[in-house]
Each structure stands twice: as structure tokens, then as C-alpha cells.
Design a protein around this nucleic acid. Structure first.
Length: 271
DNA sequence: TCCCAGGCTTGGT
DNA sequence: ACCAAGCATGGG
């Protein structure tokens, strides 16, 4: 079915760096996996996206893509009205990144993915996550497309296969993945609430402030979370003159703004 | 507060 | 062939 939205860009979301299993499969189609669900989708026009899935799966994906909110339009309007420090850069970044949404991703998958992301490049994060899934995940067949895919391994599966984790090329991050599994086995995933989830996650060995802020934004949907990685730090230093005026103005949209700036800045470096 | 190892891959000389 | 850097973190 076709979903109409003036703020939904498949390619930009796939390349935004918030998810690592969404990739192009040719012919304009993308595929992604979340939980036990598989989806193929493509951009039909600037404001239309075709979702190749059943009606019941669409409920899952509507939530996943954060489609039932007018937050994005409110954000865009607010950006147009902003004339404070850094407004030129922010307006350009948001215009360029229009269509990026903050996904509602699985708590466990996102935690592990961002532990793996540390001191790593996006293509290699994706390949590490795929390796993890193809090695320890469950093999499934999508009823709509007939395609085979692997789910992300759950906590127990990882705890039962520690040796495997140490031998799939995660580097020094392997022990962090194990410690996250042990921690979450104890607390349960419901322990990570939107308000305090980031701080709670930092009790896990291998989860510092940067990973926890990504976790809060991309899994717990804490839109006020503003992850600062090397790219965002460069933006703050070189584009925004370390003036944090925008942070107060965009308070409840900071996570979305971070994604726009991150995506825009990386595009500038690729030219 | 500052500094560096740890593991592994890619991209640039 | 060599080496730096990559959506950081923990420990000294």
C-alpha cells in the first residue's frame, strides 16, 4: 500500500545512520528488518512511499516509521521561524534532510547495534550487525515477498553462544555485547524507560554517554536526546561556533535536528 | 582532567 | 607496504 506523507524519505532514512539493517536492494526498493518483521519499501514520489506488506504488518511499520504524528511539520515550521545563532546552517541542514524520521526501533537490537557502533564506520557497523543476525538469528521467510531473512538474536541466544560472539569479528566490542546481554537478562528490557533509560544504560560496561544518547533517541524515542559524535562535535565547533542557543529553542526536537545536521554534514564531505 | 589501549577494516599515501 | 581513522569507553 502507498503511504502519503510530505516528510518521509526512504533513502535518507536508510542513510541516516540511526538504523543499520535498512539497505537498497535495487530497482528503487529497500528492505529492512526489525524484530521478527521484514519489509520492502520504495519511494514512489516525493510524498509517496509504497510499503509491500500486509495490512496487519502495516500497523507495526506505521509505529516503526513514526507516521502518526505531526511533530515533523511542527519542527519544520519552527525551523523557518528561527533566526538565532546558527540559523543559516540549521535551515540548510533541515531543508537538505527533509524526510528523515526518528524510528521507533527495538530496544535490544538498538542497544547492541550502538554498542557495536563505537569507534567504527557505518558500513562496517552494518556488516557486523548482519553477521550477528546471520550467525545467531532465526531464519525466517517473509509471507509477502517470499524472501528469507534473519532476525536479530535475542538476549538468551547471545548468552548461550558467548564463544560465537567472541569469534565473529566484533573486535574489543564483543565483551560489551556480552555485558549488555547479562545486564538486560537481569533487569528486563522494560527497565529502560524513555525518561531515565539513557542513564540506566550507562551502568552497562561499554555504554558511555554517546551510545546511551543514541539508545535513548533511536530506541526509546526520547526526542530531547542529542547524541554528540565526532561529526556533531565538528558541527558544533566549525559551523555553530559552539553557541548552544539552538538547544533551548529546539529542545523537544533536538534528536531530529541532530539527525538532520549529521546527515547534511556527511553529505558535504562526500562531494 | 588527560591519555591511551583494545580489535579490525577501509581508504589514502 | 604502511598508516591513519572510524557515529567511544574504561581504566590508569
Amino acid at each position: 500500500m502507498v503511504i502519503t506523507s510530505d516528510w518521509l524519505d526512504v533513502q535518507k532514512i536508510a542513510d541516516s545512520g540511526q538504523c543499520f539493517r535498512m539497505k537498497s536492494i535495487g530497482g528503487g526498493w529497500y528492505r529492512t528488518v526489525s524484530g521478527t518483521n521484514y519489509l520492502e519499501l520504495r519511494q514512489v514520489s516525493a510524498s509517496e512511499v509504497e510499503f509491500n506488506c500486509s495490512q496487519s504488518d502495516m500497523n507495526f511499520w506505521r509505529f516503526y516509521f513514526d507516521l502518526d504524528t505531526d511533530l515533523y511539520n511542527k519542527f519544520y515550521d519552527l525551523v523557518q521561524k528561527y533566526n538565532g545563532s546558527g540559523s543559516d546552517y540549521i535551515k540548510k541542514a533541515v531543508e537538505y534532510s527533509k524526510g528523515i524520521r526518528i524510528l521507533n526501533q527495538d530496544v535490544w537490537e538498538t542497544l547492541v547495534s550502538f554498542i557495536i557502533s563505537q569507534r567504527n564506520s557505518i558500513p562496517r557497523i552494518s556488516s557486523m550487525v548482519e553477521k550477528l543476525c546471520s550467525t545467531l538469528g532465526n531464519k525466517m521467510t517473509d509471507s509477502t515477498t517470499g524472501k528469507e531473512y534473519f532476525t536479530f538474536p535475542n538476549i538468551d541466544k547471545i548468552l548461550e553462544n558467548k564463544k560465537v560472539i567472541y569469534n565473529i569479528g566484533l573486535g574489543y566490542r564483543d565483551e560489551y555485547v556480552i555485558s549488555a546481554a547479562e545486564f538486560c537478562k537481569m533487569t528486563g528490557l522494560g527497565y529502560f524507560d524513555k525518561k531515565n533509560g539513557a542513564a540506566k544504560a550507562e551502568a552497562i560496561k561499554g555504554v558511555g554517554h554517546k551510545v546511551s544518547s543514541c539508545f535513548a533517541l533511536f530506541a526509546l524515542h526520547d526526542m530531547e536526546s542529542f547524541p554528540v559524535d565526532v561529526w556533531v562535535q565538528r558541527i558544533l565547533d566549525n559551523r555553530l561556533n559552539n553557541d548552544s542557543e539552538f538547544m533551548g529553542y529546539f529542545k523537544e526536537y533536538l534528536g531530529l535536528l541532530q539527525q538532520c545536521m549529521f546527515y547534511y554534514e556527511r553529505s558535504l564531505s562526500k562531494q
